[in-house]
Amino acid sequence: MSDGKPRIGVFKYSCCAGCEFQLIFFQKHVLETLGKVEIVFCRMLQSGGVEEGPFDVALIEGTITEQWQIEQLRKIRSVTTYVIPIGSCAVCGGVPAIKNNEQEYTIQSRVYEDTSRLTSIRAHSVDQYVPVDGYIKGCPMGERDLAEFVTSLLLGKRPEFIQYPVCVECKLQHNICVLVAYHWPCMGPVTNAGCGALCPSHDRECYGCWGPMKNAHARALANRFAKMGLSEEDICRRFTEFGEPTVEWKPGQVRRWDVVQK
């Protein structure tokens, strides 16, 4: 941090750009804060900028789905102190990684007439390619962890990101558990908190948009869903909508599991 202001780069890969919007939207709280950091590179906010860094912080948005992205990511890593994936796509594969669930060509030809010029690869999270220094989870990334990160940066302390399941926030809010009470297939027990248990607080089940909780026990929840009468396809869908490539949710992707066993 040369003149005391952290230098920040924001990079976008395959995603809906919702996280960057969230960052820009977030300015309403943080005009003061933005004065305290220097945005060196952020395509959505300003043209130009120094793409090559160096950066104190690189915020990475989006799933990695092309070779050039991996190469750029490695370069960023080499000139950056803290690399932080933001949002489910970058953190755990997010929605773009649903495609991993089928043959690449099958998916491509469903969308494009001419697939000959496509160069995309299997979708993976940022940490599959470079070491990272923390995650700001959410879809789009959550305000609480973003605020924690920004204020920690300014205070020079280690950020304390939320690392417990949605169920904890759900209970802190006193919501009646929709999984136990109404047998709705809630992903809360295996999903990282941060949203404040938004969906159960609005009388519906969590669909896991924050991505897997560390150490989640997906198989136990998948078994519970099966006992509730969900089909293997439905269970598989719940565990692949977000976090398809993650080791935590693999055991919940029942259908694929069966294919392997058969």
Partner: peptide
């Protein structure tokens, strides 16, 4: 191994 999700619902109630 078979069933505990580590979800903490038991503790919180």
């Amino acid at each position: 191994d078979a069933r505990c999700l580590g979800c903490s619902n038991c503790v919180l109630v």
